[in-house]
Computed example of a mutant assay.
Amino acid sequence: MSAMKLNLFAAWVSFALVLLSVVCLGGFLVAAGSGQGGWAVIAGSLCVVALAGAMALYGGTVRHDHRLHHETPHLF
Rank of each mutant, 00 (worst) to 15 (best):
41 V>E: 09
48 V>C: 07
68 L>E: 15
73 P>W: 01
52 A>R: 06
44 G>Y: 02
61 T>A: 06
38 G>P: 01
72 T>A: 15
37 G>I: 06
44 G>H: 06
46 L>F: 09
53 G>N: 05
57 L>E: 03
42 I>V: 15
41 V>G: 04
56 A>R: 12
65 D>S: 13
47 C>R: 00
71 E>A: 14
69 H>M: 13
50 A>T: 00
38 G>H: 05
54 A>G: 08
67 R>Y: 13
69 H>R: 14
46 L>Q: 03
57 L>K: 10
62 V>L: 14
46 L>W: 02
54 A>K: 02
39 W>K: 07
56 A>F: 14
75 L>P: 04
50 A>R: 00
52 A>V: 12
59 G>A: 12
49 V>M: 07
66 H>V: 11
67 R>K: 15
70 H>F: 15
45 S>I: 05
58 Y>V: 01
50 A>L: 01
73 P>T: 05
46 L>V: 06
66 H>F: 11
35 G>C: 05
43 A>G: 02
74 H>K: 15
67 R>Q: 11
35 G>L: 08
65 D>Q: 15
73 P>I: 06
67 R>D: 12
72 T>G: 04
49 V>P: 01
53 G>I: 01
70 H>A: 09
58 Y>C: 01
48 V>W: 05
53 G>T: 03
42 I>M: 12
45 S>P: 02
57 L>Q: 07
68 L>T: 09
59 G>P: 04
74 H>V: 13
42 I>S: 07
66 H>T: 08
60 G>T: 09
71 E>D: 11
49 V>A: 10
37 G>T: 10
41 V>Y: 05
74 H>E: 12
69 H>K: 15
68 L>V: 11
52 A>N: 06
42 I>Q: 04
46 L>P: 00
73 P>M: 07
55 M>L: 14
61 T>P: 00
39 W>N: 11
59 G>Q: 10
75 L>M: 14
50 A>M: 02
51 L>R: 02
55 M>K: 11
69 H>S: 15
73 P>S: 09
55 M>R: 08
65 D>H: 15
54 A>Y: 01
52 A>W: 07
35 G>M: 06
50 A>C: 10
63 R>P: 02
54 A>L: 09
75 L>E: 03
40 A>K: 06
55 M>V: 08
71 E>N: 11
64 H>R: 12
49 V>Q: 03
56 A>L: 15
57 L>C: 07
44 G>E: 00
34 S>Y: 04
75 L>T: 09
34 S>F: 06
70 H>N: 15
36 Q>T: 04
35 G>W: 05
51 L>Q: 05
34 S>E: 02
50 A>F: 00
60 G>L: 12
51 L>E: 04
55 M>E: 05
72 T>N: 08
